[in-house]
Simulated scan of single mutants.
Amino acid sequence: MLRVERIYHRSVVTLLLLILLLPLAATLVYALSSQWGATILPQGFTLKWLLQLWQDPRFLAALGHSLVICFSALLLSVVLVLPLMFVIAYYFPALDGIMNVLILLPFAVPPVVSSVGLLQLYSAGPLAMTGTPWILIGCYFTITLPFIYRAITNNMQAIHLRDLMDAAHLLGAGTWQAALLVVLPNLRKGCLIALLLSFSFLIGEFVLANMLVGNRYETLQVYLFNMRNGSGHFTSAMVISYFMVVLLLTWVANTVNKGKEG
């Protein structure tokens, strides 16, 4: 009976993986095909479209812009939010309920609505940031708050933060010394999960990037939108390249995390 259930569960998981991977596999085949029209299978394979994409200075610039904005927003989130989360969890745990409501506010306002307000607010005056990467970094910082806060808060609850701090105090460590040397290393997994979730969401964000910056600081998604009327093979190569960049960064982060654990 257990063997039948195991086979059934594996079959369901395998079928689900196939369903999820089938569109991606079809996109990859189309990106590598020289021509694919009326026939079931491509008439030939080529690396022309991938080479053309990665030799395009505009694509490389857009990819660099996206990485700079995403990493800057994530760095700002960790530097500003992580100490605040420690203070709330250790000194003011009663505020956790209020924070759970506040961090959802970025998702309560649609990006189109918030973009219109930001355009009116930052298009002129002393803080004219429209069309610059700075306004996107600020917007992406607010978007990452729910991911950062929830993942790290769950990690803090799992490691029993107060017990760790009390043990460190008994051994003679100060509060912030214990936070840096004892608590922070135990939050590595939670931080990594939060950063990966945030990065995968930010690098695919389009509405804010297109409305607030557009072609003045073209990001990867804006570039993909601008090239939508080109060759379908070229567009498929962009989608596959986008997926591979995210997959590569995720693999690097997991490798670094495993190396530290070893």
Rank of each mutant, 00 (worst) to 15 (best):
T130H: 04
A128P: 09
G44H: 04
I88W: 01
A108Q: 03
A94L: 15
L47P: 11
S123Q: 05
L82G: 05
T144W: 00
S114P: 09
S123C: 02
D166M: 13
L76M: 07
F59Y: 10
W49N: 04
S72I: 10
L136S: 06
T142S: 10
D166H: 13
A151L: 12
W36L: 03
A61Q: 15
Y91N: 12
T46H: 05
Q35W: 14
L75W: 07
I152L: 07
Q55L: 11
I69M: 00
H160K: 14
L105N: 04
R58I: 09
L127S: 04
Q157T: 11
T153W: 10
S77C: 07
F147A: 07
N100Q: 13
L105W: 04
V116R: 00
S66P: 09
A124V: 10
I88K: 00
L74A: 00
A89R: 02
V112D: 07
D163G: 09
L121I: 08
P133E: 08
V109R: 01
R58T: 15
K48M: 12
N100C: 08
Q55I: 06
A128V: 05
A158H: 06
T39M: 09
I137S: 02
G97Y: 09
I152A: 01
S123T: 06
Q120V: 07
L102D: 11
W134Q: 05
F71D: 03
C70T: 15
N100S: 04
